[in-house]
Design a protein around this nucleic acid. Structure first.
Length: 185
DNA sequence: CGCGTTTGACCCGCGC
DNA sequence: GCGCGGGTCAAACGCG
């Protein structure tokens, strides 16, 4: 059921395509604040590649919306330690902290939880989510900090290969209208 | 009934 | 080789 492990030798890894949504907008019914100057080094626990580095420009746009841009500057390095199935592909990761009472941020995508583990040195379990889109293999981990229980650490792995559903929902009537107008004129 | 969550088992890499 | 820690699977369950 898992994709075949015995594959022909892979060419040198290519840089991942640029994110389709370099600017993400999180909305939440509960006030959510993205913490600027997130210490990504500390977020990357020992099982992550430390060669990842990110440039992140965060700005709060309102009380309950946290907006940020990011740029993945990571080199493509093989993730040797992949618990469970051994995947050899290089997957871009980025992590950030938010201050929120909610663990789950509404980032516009649909996620299905596929696991939860208690992790060492943490009072809170880590939750594992996968994007529900058929062709999309993006995952995210969500964990609350023990030090500051108001802070939630979210780690994304991979890049969505489909548009954000929330945005499409919002835009589709408009796009339809535009299409209609184009047809008329 | 379809979709998402829960949760224990399982797998795998790493350190000793 | 063994145990630990972390990531994933999948059956059972819950909910709309």
């Amino acid at each position: 059921m898992e994709e075949q492990e015995a594959s022909p030798p892979l060419p040198p890894p290519l840089l991942p395509p640029p994110p389709t949504n370099p600017t993400c907008l999180f909305t939440s019914s509960i006030p959510t604040t993205l913490l600027p100057n997130t210490n990504l080094e500390s977020l990357m626990s020992r099982n992550y590649n430390h060669n990842h580095s990110f440039e992140q420009n965060a700005a709060e746009t309102s009380e309950n919306v946290a907006k940020f841009d990011y740029e993945d500057k990571s080199e493509n390095i093989k993730d040797k330690r992949r618990g469970g199935r051994n995947r050899k592909s290089t997957i871009p990761r980025f992590a950030f902290q938010t201050r929120s009472e909610e663990d789950i941020l509404d980032d516009g995508y649909r996620w299905r939880k596929y696991g939860q583990k208690s992790v060492k040195n943490s009072n809170f379990p880590r939750s594992y989510y996968r994007c529900t889109h058929h062709t999309c293999n993006v995952k995210k981990q969500v964990q609350r900090l023990t030090k500051d229980t108001s802070i939630v650490v979210t780690t994304y792995e991979g890049i969505h290969n489909h548009p954000c559903e929330k945005i499409m929902e919002t835009l589709s009537p408009l796009l339809k209208q535009i299409g209609f107008l184009n047809n008329r004129f």
